[in-house]
Design a protein around this nucleic acid. Structure first.
Lengths: 245, 245
DNA sequence: GGACGGCAAAGTGTATACACATTCACCGGC
DNA sequence: GCCGGTGAATGTGTATACACTTTGCCGTCC
C-alpha cells in the first residue's frame, strides 16, 4: 500500500527535475509535491479515488505536514484532488455533470486559443508543432507508452504559442481534469487523441486558416467527448445518478 | 493604518454573512477571509498594492495564522493577491501585459457563456435579467455608489444561468482581476459597464438571437478594454515598460 | 450467530513555537 | 548634513504539538 504510492507519485523522471536538483531549493517543496501529483494524474498513474494521506506524503517528500497541506490545498483548488473534511484528500472523481461542463469549457478555451496561434505563430512555432506531429506519429507506430502524454502536449504547445498565459492556465486545469475523466471512463489503452486530427489542425494553422482550424479543433474535441459519453453510459459507475440524485 | 484595513476588509455587509452567523461554523473561517478580501477587491475598497500582513488579519478575524495563510494561498492562486517570498502578501497589481491576456480570456469565456444562456435560459432566467436591468437603470439614475457592483453582477448572472460552473469559475476569477485592473487604471467614478449595452444583450437573449448576443457582448468588452488601454497609455505607471523590460 | 456499542489506532484541523528574513530607525563616520 | 551600516522590531516559513474526528476491530449482549 505504502510502496505503491511511492512508485506512483515519485516517478518524476522528467529532466526538469534532474537539472535543478543541484540547486539548494530547486523549486519550493510544495511546488515539487504539486508537480509530482499533477504529473502522476496527467500520466494516468494516479487514478481517481486514490487516497493521499498526509503522513505518507510527508515521509515521501521529507517535509512536514505544513508543506504537504499547502500542496494539497492548491491541488484541491484545481479540482484535481478533493479535500473531504476530516477525511483526508483523495484524487478527484469527476461526475458526469462535471464532465459535460469541463468539455464545454475546454471547447471554448481551445476555440479561443487556435485563432491566437494562427495570428501569432512564428515560423519556429509552426516548425515546432510539425516536429511534435512527427514524434507523435513515430510513437503511435511503435505504440510507445508515453504516446498519450505526447498527444496531450500538442494542446499544451498550442496554448503556449498563443501567448496568453491566462488561457494557458485554464487549459492546463481543464486538461488535468480531462485526464481524470478519461481514467474514470475510458478502457485502458484506448485513450487519447487521434493523431490525424492534430496534423490536420497544424496544416490549417500553417495555411493561416483560422476558421478552418477552429472548426477542426471543435470537431476533434467533440469526438473525444462523445467517445467518453458513450463509455459513461456503458459504465454508469455513478451511484448518485442511478439513485436519481 | 490598522484601522483602515479593518474598515476595508471587514465591511462585509452582505446578508449571506448575517443569515449564517447564527450557525456555529457559518462557513469555514478561511472561506470568510477569502470572501471578505474578494468582496473588498470587487467593490474597489482594497486597491492594488495594499499590504495584507498576516498578524493583522489574525486579529481581525480572530483566527491563527494557519487559517489566514490558507485564505491568502487561495487568493494568490486566483491572482488576486501576490505572495512575495518572505515579504508578505499584497493585493495584486496586474501589468499591462496581464491586462491584455485577462481581457482576451474574458472575451473568450463570455463569448462561450452567451450562447449557453440563449440555449438554456428559462422564462424565469430572462425575467431575472430584466429585473437586474431595471435596478441597474435605477441605480444609474440616482448615481448609487453600488452601481458598479450591480453592473458587474449582470455578467455574474449570465454565467450562473449558463449552467456551466467551470466557466462560471473562470469568469469570477477574470472579473476579480478586471476589478484590480480598473482600480489601477481607471479614474475613480468613471468605471464599470455601459447600461445600454447590457440591456441590448438581454434583448438579444430574449429573442433567442445567439449570434447577435455574442457580437454585442464582444463589442461591449472591447469598449471596456479600449477605455482602459487608453488610460494605461495616459498613466503609464509601469516603470518596467518604461525601461523596456 | 448477528448486531450494536465502545475502544484504540490512524489521520486530520488548528494553534503555537522557533528560526530566519526583511525593514526601518538610529547612529557614527565622512 | 548626508550617506551607509548596525540592531531591534516586525513579519514570514516551517515544524511540531495537541485536540478532535473518523474508522475499523473486538467484545458483549440479545
Amino acid at each position: 500500500m505504502f510502496h505503491t504510492l511511492v512508485a506512483i507519485v515519485m516517478a518524476t523522471d522528467n529532466k526538469a527535475d534532474r537539472t535543478t536538483r543541484t540547486r539548494r531549493t530547486p523549486t519550493s517543496a510544495d511546488e515539487r509535491i504539486y508537480n509530482s501529483v499533477f504529473s502522476a494524474v496527467m500520466h494516468q498513474r494516479l487514478k481517481p479515488g486514490t487516497r493521499l494521506p498526509e503522513p505518507e506524503l510527508c515521509t515521501l517528500f521529507k517535509v512536514s505536514r505544513t508543506i504537504v497541506r499547502k500542496a494539497l490545498q492548491r491541488l484541491a483548488h484545481d479540482h484535481i484532488v478533493s479535500l473531504r473534511h476530516n477525511k483526508g484528500a483523495v484524487v478527484a472523481s469527476p461526475t458526469r455533470e462535471e464532465t459535460r461542463e469541463v468539455f464545454e469549457a475546454r471547447r471554448a478555451v481551445e476555440a479561443a486559443i487556435v485563432p491566437l496561434v494562427v495570428a501569432r505563430a512564428s515560423k519556429e512555432g509552426i516548425a515546432r508543432l510539425r516536429g511534435m506531429m512527427d514524434t507523435e506519429a513515430h510513437m503511435l507506430r511503435e505504440s510507445h507508452p508515453d504516446w498519450v502524454q505526447q498527444a496531450g502536449s500538442f494542446h499544451h504547445a498550442l496554448a503556449e504559442i498563443s501567448g496568453n498565459r491566462v488561457l494557458q492556465g485554464f487549459l492546463m486545469s481543464l486538461m488535468s481534469r480531462c485526464s481524470l475523466i478519461v481514467a474514470l471512463y475510458e478502457p485502458p489503452g484506448d485513450a487519447g487523441c487521434e493523431h490525424d486530427e492534430h496534423a490536420a489542425i497544424v496544416d490549417c494553422i500553417a495555411k493561416g486558416d483560422a476558421t478552418g482550424a477552429i472548426a477542426l479543433m471543435a470537431r476533434h474535441l467533440e469526438t473525444l467527448e462523445q467517445r467518453i459519453e458513450y463509455r459513461q453510459e456503458e459504465a454508469e459507475p455513478d451511484l448518485g445518478s442511478l439513485l436519481g440524485l
